[in-house]
Design a protein around this nucleic acid. Structure first.
Lengths: 336, 336
DNA sequence: GAAAATTATGCACCCGCGTGCAAGCGGACT
DNA sequence: AGTCCGCTTGCACGCGGGTGCATAATTTTC
């Protein structure tokens, strides 16, 4: 390591060089501060020369605003998380926030991790977990100093949280109608884990719409985790022993991870084809679904708009309405 | 939002309740501090009652140790990143470090983002990017206050960095020998982008070993990004027009992302089978490769051990040797 | 051209905790 | 009983900057 450690250049040093007071130096670094263009230029010149940059730690301590957001993730198996992280970190950064990545996979660690985040005075905690249960929500809520608890990409009925998600109901209605319109008649809904606080209404929406539209009752089953391997196993179990005229002709999945497992099972366990023998739909539009192995018909959430909604919440300029009704769009490929 | 905001419980408040001085309160929260068991208990009791937790911002400011690590990621397309993030965040947390996720996808933002991280006094910056080029390295190095720059899962020749990775050469030799042993004779090496500072020696190793062992020269080509779609296109171009006796019988890929694209191309563009017509190998063992679509023969890096190596570097107890010679193991499935 | 209205700059005090050292306390030993 | 020693506890000062207001430097106004 070369000469890294010329630390300790503080605003005072810059002030000395620029011939102003320390406060003027800090003003120079603050947007729309009351300072003349000339002095600011002089300060910046000195700062650049010394390699000075304001210390965010000290700033956070003094101002009680950290510009830090904790991102709680409890599922690293779904590639969609990667997409969300990319979008979140990029856009948050553009608006001045940094992201603390908190792994809450292990329940025990989760409490500690969350506690830790709160001790760093994060401005908000954003949950993009899908497996999180009510207990995790409570833990998060219990943590002091977490000013805002935001559930992202999932609806939460908990009054202590702000949930930013797309209009799941509308999305699922659209998907259901598409499936019905395609002429499928024996559906199977493949749901993920069922939790209380932050629940997706996809299954309920699908079942209700299906019955209303066709007069028949749709079958469903659920998987304990959003894991393609588990979906594979569940679908295999479900289809085994069913004769061709009794097995489903379409499997509507709660998300792409499940859908990919389902397609694999259909193809490799039963030698059937998608969509000819059994069609499949997903949700999320993860990059992998474009592979010719899947060509999945799915639904894309308006992530960018949602993250911008998040930013407005962070800035405190939200009207708190319409944050759970973002409209995405269906992506129709070959799987259904 | 309910009653979140009973902030401002400081060590002083606890001290008052416990009937000790503020310093004693902080001692109680510090491992192996000089304090009697009795007082500590009394302090903790009071703290629990008040819901007090030390402020890490203030602590970092005062102690000049943030227990924060910046994780720089410039590729959110490869699912392997998700695996690494999970492992890194979990193990770092166990050792007391939090992780700042920095998106350096966009070169322009990267500088700002990195600057920002340094302003938070991160103890180290860890690069798990694969596309990062020399300029990015330089930017990182230029950032003040970044005490340690660590290149993770990739070898870096830059003397100002510490690189923690597996013994790529040994791994590739093993893979090459496996491929040779299987009897393949017309290989194609599919490499990723070629950068200078942090280069994988996989291609060189493969080509050299192949020639030494068989006396023939192996073909190779490269892809501009570690993206299955690009790999698909490149492989398609490469194979188009080749008669069966002139096309490769095995494609050795620099990582799984490329391998998956290759397999898709082989199957869907040419109607060929893997491994019967063209075998394929990858590197990383990402979860997706276990899908029956791929059943990829690949190489698994010892991530946990590597992260523990990282921790020891952070703790400053590393011998600085052996950090780039971790031994992983081949995972032989059906693709080769 | 002087008073009023702006805009610039400086400053005291605070954010919450860490560091190193000095003071307090009790027991063992001569 | 007095002294030395080791373990606890208290404290002054500092980490680097933010806030609100007072003061100084300009500019505007009539």
């Amino acid at each position: 390591m070369a000469d890294r450690a010329n630390d300790n250049i503080t605003a005072d040093d810059v002030a000395r060089v620029a011939g102003v007071s320390r406060w003027t130096v800090n003003r120079a670094f603050k947007k729309d501060a009351s300072i003349s263009a000339a002095t600011r230029a002089r300060v910046m010149e000195a700062a650049g020369q010394l390699g000075y940059a304001p210390d965010l730690l000290a700033a956070s301590l003094a101002s009680d605003r950290s510009n830090l957001v904790a991102l709680l993730v409890d599922d690293f198996a779904n590639p969609h998380k990667l997409v969300m992280m990319e979008r979140l970190t990029r856009i948050l950064r553009q608006h001045g926030w940094d992201t603390l990545l908190v792994n809450t996979l292990d329940r025990n660690d989760a409490t500690v991790a969350l506690m830790n985040a709160s001790q760093r005075r994060v401005d908000a905690a954003v949950l993009i977990g899908v497996n999180f249960d009510d207990q995790e929500l409570e833990t998060a809520l219990g943590a002091r100093r977490i000013r805002k608890l935001i559930v992202f990409a999932r609806f939460s009925a908990n009054p202590n949280t702000i949930s930013i998600c797309c209009d799941d109901r509308a999305a699922m209605l659209q998907m259901t109608d598409h499936v019905i319109g395609k002429g499928y008649r024996r559906p199977l809904f493949l749901a993920g884990p069922q939790t209380l606080s932050a629940h997706l209404m996809r299954k309920e929406t699908f079942l209700a719409r299906w019955q209303a539209a066709t007069g028949t009752i749709a079958a469903f089953t659920s998987v304990a985790r959003y894991d393609p391997t588990l979906a594979y196993a569940t679908v295999t179990t479900h289809l085994t022993g069913l004769s061709a005229d009794r097995r489903p002709d379409v499997i509507v999945c709660e998300n792409d991870a499940l859908a990919m497992g389902a397609i694999d099972a259909i193809r490799y366990e039963f030698g059937l084809r998608t969509p000819d023998d059994i069609a499949v739909t997903g949700f999320d539009d993860v990059p992998q679904t474009t592979s010719p192995n899947y060509r999945l018909t799915t639904y894309r959430q308006p992530l960018t708009a949602m993250v911008e909604g998040l930013v407005s919440v962070l800035k405190g300029e939200t009207e708190s309405a319409d944050l759970s009704l973002f409209q995405g769009r269906m992506v129709i490929r070959d799987s259904a």
